[in-house]
Design a protein around this nucleic acid. Sequence first.
RNA 1: GCCGUGGUGGUGGAACUGGUAGACACGCAGGACUUAAAAUCCUGUGAGCCUCAAAGCUCGUGCGGGUUCGAUUCCCGCCCGCGGUACCA
Length: 971
Amino acid sequence: MEYRFNEIEEKWKKIWEEKGLYKVTEDPANPKYYVLDMFPYPSGAGLHVGHPLGYVASDIYARYKRLKGFNVLHPMGYDAFGLPAEQYAIETGTHPAITTDTAIKRYREQLDKIGFSFDWSRQVKTCEPAYYKWTQWIFLKLFNSWYNREADKAESIESLISRFEKEGCAAGSPLERVGAKTFTSTEWKAFSEGDKQQVLMCYRLAYLSYAEVNWCEALGTVLANDEVKDGKSERGGHPVERRKMRQWFLRITEYSDRLLDALDKLDWPEAMKEMQRNWIGRSEGASVNFKLETSNAQLEVFTTRPDTIFGATFMVIAPEHELVEQLTTAEQKAEIEKYIAYVKSRSDVERQQEKKVTGAFTGSCAINPFTQQPIPIWIAEYVLAGYGTGAIMAVPADDERDRKFAEKFGLPIVDIIDKSMHPGATIEDKVGKMINSGFLNGMEVKDAIKAVIDELEKRGIGKRKVNYKQRDAGYSRQRYWGEPFPIKYKVQGEPDPPFAGGENDDIPMALSENDLPLVLPEVSSYKPGGDGRSPLANNADWVKAGYETDTMPGYAGSSWYFLRYMDANNPDEFAAKDKINYWKNVDIYFGGAEHAVGHLLYSRMWHKFLFDLGYVPTDEPFQKLVNQGMIQGVSKFAYYLVNTRQFVSLNIFKSLMQYPEKKDELKNNKWGINFEKLWNENLYKGDIKEYQNTIVIQDPHVLIDLVGSEGELDVAGFKKWRPIYSNAGFDLLEEGKYYCGSAVEKMSKSKYNVVNPDDVIEKHGADCFRMFEMFLGPIEQSKPWDDKGISGVSNFLRKFWRLFYDDSRFKVVDEAPTEAELKVLHKHIKKVTEDIEKLSYNTCVSSFMIATNELNALNSSKRAILQPLLVTLAPFAPFITEELWAALGNKESIHTAAFPVFEQKYLVEISHDYGVSINGKVRAQITLPLDISEEDAKAQVLALENVMKWTNGNPPKKFIFVRGRIINVVV
RNA sequence: GCCGUGGUGGUGGAACUGGUAGACACGCAGGACUUAAAAUCCUGUGAGCCUCAAAGCUCGUGCGGGUUCGAUUCCCGCCCGCGGUACCA
């Protein structure tokens, strides 16, 4: 009987669906295991072969764990709020919900074809009110919480209020916050409700604040730091500028230390952890207060190198620093104003691209607390207002940027560290002896750092301090297609709520939990609502009711979805406590590396927050993380000469590009082309600077389907596909054929290099598709899609089928297996078990091929061999294994089988290979039993004919055992 | 620049804690079956040398050193690719 994958796949898909085979319930009798994929954003383009790579990998793991007896949670859902659907809505007027729904249906169809074992009854869609009700609910919890630094955890805001009532908030107390006022308990009680709310806003974990944000004019919205790349928006590449707006923020910085420290316990790729560490950017140092020469004010700087204070020959503050005005003297006023105007004129893009050494002198000086020398204070754009205190002490001798600055403006440079003992040492190495540094002289750098901080603290002018690069996360988006905030402001014309503030500083009131969900309303237009407001401002009723018009960012719904899967349909809680306590956290999480500092960081914070409030039993959401690589597309190009609209085949094109240099070589070319003529006719003579010696070539992408395996183009098909080229010339051919160029790029519709999994499945079957994707290479590696090798997997599946079926009959027999067959089986079980655990799926697939070939050679079709073999294949190829499992007479699905365990006795590992080398020159190997003693091994080696030959019949003088295994023989 | 990660045949990729480098697959070459093709099966396939043949030898895991009886694996110094990040004091 023939292996007909199409029929088999149809049949079993239906049966699985009917039986609800992959539905999972909490079962305390069995150990749980939670296998999660990063849920997709359902884009209109559908899936390409790259998307399922991670899903296949996780599905194999989930199926394997099930066969191993675990109760496996393996859900799937959709991250359904997002920009593309909204952009589409702006263009076409179609409601994003409709676009999203269509895309989801298509995704589901494509996913179903691949044979995943998802429990669809737990599906979540972040855009559904039943889901975002709980996103809003968590937001309210964040809003109504503060971070208690003494207990090092989040607590209800009520506990803060009662402490204010009892003790107030004294300067220097653990309750004090930078930028917030201090007060006594009596003062607190006397505050108006509005004043109190304003104070509390400095503590809430979700809070409103004016802050510089990344404003993108083109998108009409604010972007998070990680949505901005090189001064441009990640989506669309539009320019981004800084702008002050009133925004919601999450106080993620309160969690910086915990987010950082817990990384060590996580089983994540080093690169991921490193990215998070860099993002959090913890650095230890000291803050130092410098007295000013002419006033009583102080200038606070942050430095990681307080030991270099004797070399601080000038200070630099950010142009936006609050003291700039006060520090600027009358004489310098004009210059400072000119400089600030210059800085403002520089866009972020310019700042990042050309790093000029610029600055201006304020005219004021600070006093070095140790030398009492005056230090001039400058402003410069290289000091950032947002980091540290926005002011630095510049040490030109030991800081690259400070030195450049000093050199440009003729400021003194004083060496303070003698690094002569450490040639090649960099500043970061923190080595050398202090010189020219008063009481620090002669100390090693590391001792000096400690000594100087002690001294600063003693004198009360500085203290140890830790700084973070990480900022609080912007949480407002001026977009329609997102979660509405469960927040109301003061309403015009209605009586003020008890604590409404001023006109533009209305104090937000949280909705009651009972009012959730606050459903996203319809709007008359999806275009931005003006004044930087979201399209929700286009809904008059919404505005009139005083609701917040911004919506939550894309990461809101994805920061906790893994918890919702635990109890996806619960209307009363985000998930019931007993279910959370059963599933606990995600054991293994598959997803792309691009979410390293976005989703993965926010999720960790939310999870820690919910842990603090006692809603989840673990403080980390994702124990193990696996980054699957990307599958890239191979793009094809056709080249044509712009002047003549003449297409040029690849090799002719290459020759043409090197024409002037290889003039002579190309004279008598195999294509009989007159390159000189071609070159002269097509030399672009316009802008000589740019195009000198170059021919203008356009290289439009070509639909990959039109290109053969050798790169030859279907010219007729191409002309039909791109009518604008229907009259173009195709005369410059190689032996009558046009060959395309190619490049490996990200798969994308616009590059016409997308391979649709549906096509592959149609041709080779889902099992083959799954196995081939795994066979391509290690899952964490990115690689181009190349279906040349797919026949290998396809052949394997047919060979495997033939272990069970002849041309005409089912040939499995119930005879007892031979020793040889058992060895093949158990070697394979061992290999597959170990490799699945290591996620080394490509070598697993190899093991299947080897086992199949070996059994074929043994002409074996014994049930006792094939049945366990089948189970090991089940995670990889669910359809074919289900079919053959049934053919073996099993009534239940193979899903319920137990993964076989290998038996040591069948494994060939009953001996050791001993390497024998003589004086390090000759080497031989003999095989001895595992349990042999050293003496016996020596005797055996001596008996080894070769040894006696090599040593001219003299017995070796000395044997060297390495770990009881390797013998060296010294003559 | 800094951080991370990788570099192995014509190709994708294997190789346990340092122990016969190149598993498995693709491709290619030859053969069997066939009128033929497809499919299937068998053989060979890192480079070079030597031999009628069998056998044997040398070189080979980015480059240069080192440790070791023995290195793709460990150490030192470079080169290149990929990913992240960047006036972060």
